[in-house]
């Protein structure tokens, strides 16, 4: 149930400002960590700004939606929506420069498939990826635990799809004057898809988003749902608050900035290439070295324990021999 969920407790924020603040913090933290030796101007040139990060994220969100749409076998909308939730949550705390979105993207989708019980094996999954499949496998496996940790293991996501169904059943039952509520569906789906390009899911409850989608669809088709909302669904005291929320959601959807062109995207990628954290780039030497070190560490610790064991055993046998000699001398 949503009222007692971790989503409501930990992942709903006051407004877009608070969310922007979190992203700024993540961005600033990265710059401080990796650019302490640079001057202020140099830093601004070298690292991505918050706006640049955001436009990159938006670009990757769109490619994420495309990936989910073209996924084979066809992926349910809830799975795609959940993965977008994960993606958004992850970059509230982490900078794009620290972890490249393309790696986090596949990991988010793969984790969402598991959580939403959309059963695909990892081989089936990477078959949908262009490029090196084996590398993709490794990226997903290496990043999955990190992702879950960054999500605080809050994996259950409440999406607006079920509330939409609930509202449609309710409208059909209690508001028969609207003749064909199912006609609204294409518009609702369109709206919901757009919602995931905004941060509305990090601010409003899924039922509110669902209601906004239905009201948007109704107003687009000139169907009148006002009396349903004002007379049947809500009481007068609560009305103001919800109308405001619905309005805000619709504004957010309307205000989705245009997607960046491929050229700017390429420029940003070039910049990112320079300022990204090489430790988290699977192509970098440092990353490979670190992985090897981790494997070596395992070996070394094993070797150490082995050495310890053999040492203690040899000591033990020495003691025995000494005892024997001692006994013999007494006997003689």
């Amino acid at each position: 149930m949503f009222p007692v969920s971790s989503q409501k407790k930990h992942w709903l924020f006051t407004d877009e400002k608070e969310i922007a603040q979190l992203r700024e913090q993540a961005n600033a933290a990265y710059i401080v960590k990796h650019g302490s030796h640079m001057t202020k101007e140099k830093r601004e040139n070298h690292f991505l700004s918050c706006q640049e990060e955001e436009s990159l994220l938006r670009y990757w969100e769109i490619s994420m939606k495309k990936f989910c749409k073209n996924f084979n076998p066809p992926m349910p909308k809830a799975t795609a929506a959940t993965s977008l939730h994960y993606f958004k949550r992850f970059y509230l705390r982490n900078s794009v420069m620290d972890y490249h979105p393309k790696y986090i993207m596949v990991t988010c989708i793969y984790l969402a498939c598991k959580v939403e019980e959309f059963n695909v094996s990892i081989l089936q999954f990477v078959a949908n990826v262009n490029g090196d499949k084996e590398k993709c496998c490794n990226i997903i496996i290496n990043n999955e635990l990190l992702l879950m940790q960054q999500l605080d293991y809050h994996l259950t996501i409440h999406n607006p799809f079920r509330p939409v169904e609930g509202f449609l059943i309710d409208i059909r039952t209690r508001f028969p004057s609207l003749e064909n509520p199912d006609d609204l569906r294409p518009l609702i789906d369109e709206f919901l898809e757009k919602v995931f390009s905004t941060d509305a899911v990090l601010i409003y409850a899924p039922s509110q988003i669902a209601l906004a989608a239905i009201l948007h669809a109704a107003s687009s088709t000139k169907a009148n749902l006002d009396s349903y909302v004002t007379d049947l669904l809500l009481s007068r005291e609560q009305l103001k608050n919800i109308v405001a929320a619905v309005k805000e959601i619709r504004m957010m959807v309307k205000g989705i900035p245009a997607t960046i062109s491929v050229e700017t995207m390429k420029l940003l990628e070039k910049k990112l290439e320079k300022c990204k954290n090489p430790e988290n780039d699977p192509d970098s030497d440092i990353y490979k070295q670190r992985m090897e070190e981790m494997i070596d560490e395992d070996d070394i610790s094993n070797n150490k324990t082995y050495a310890k064991l053999t040492h203690s055993q040899s000591e033990c046998s020495n003691d025995k021999i000494l005892d024997q000699i001692f006994d013999q001398s007494i006997c003689n």
Binding site: M1, F2, P3, K8, G166, S207, A210
Partner: peptide, 8 residues
């Protein structure tokens, strides 16, 4: 689910 947290 449609009704829950509508007053949020």
């Amino acid at each position: 689910e449609a009704m829950s947290c509508l007053y949020h």
